[in-house]
Amino acid sequence: MNYHWNWNVFFQTIPSGDETYLAWIIHGLGWTVSISLAAWVIALVLGSVMGTLRTVPNTGLRLIGHAWVEFFRNVPLLMQLFIWFFVVPEMLPRDWGMWVKQDMPAKEFITAFVALGLFTSARVAEQVRAGIQALPRGQRNAGLAIGFTQAQTYRYVILPMAFRIIIPPLTSEFMNAFKNSGVAYTVGVWELIFVSRQMVEETGGQVIESLIVPTVLYILCAYAANQLMAVIDRRAHVPGFIVAK
């Protein structure tokens, strides 16, 4: 292999402006982190609600939770992103659709994190449901027996334990949110994958340099997400409680 290394490529300016490639990559990292975190908030909130709904006694509510999960889990993320970006605006009333297509601020960014958030919410919901169902059935009875309503039983008894149990799988979903955020490049968000591809094309063959820096940044993001969840796990640790698995 005859490869000409050139790390100085990061200090060249990009053809379309006066930024260096290094600065561009840092911006790219900013977008990657923003999309991932925003999506994670959506996923955590909606996933918790939908996962909980799947375990309540009311059949109608259970059905809503189930439909939500099936709907957002069974179509690839990239396809879902295209649906939100290209199809949904066409389905809206004409004026709204025009507004979305032409005037909506940061529409690429918003579409990307909403799509990623909804996709991830289905997976979070599955984990939340599994966590709730892993608890001994007696816990629900004990909550009800001291006079809690269903809602109170969830709030004070079931969910605090269920969330503790599912911290490990939630950690990997959180890391997945970072890894999956790359699809946003397809609708034109200038995140890491986008920058990486542009660099490969524009620098005339500095392939390894162009790919390796974003790759390392992704690994660091995943590591940071992992550490953050580990801190939460330690804080939430209950003395004497061993997860039975």
């Binding site: 009875n141 004990a142 027996a145 334990m161 503790r164």
Partner: peptide, 16 residues
């Protein structure tokens, strides 16, 4: 239920 105490086979204290 708030007036009727219940004790379970597996204790069912709230572990957290």
């Amino acid at each position: 239920r708030s007036h009727v105490g219940m004790v379970f086979q597996h204790f069912e204290l709230f572990p957290h």
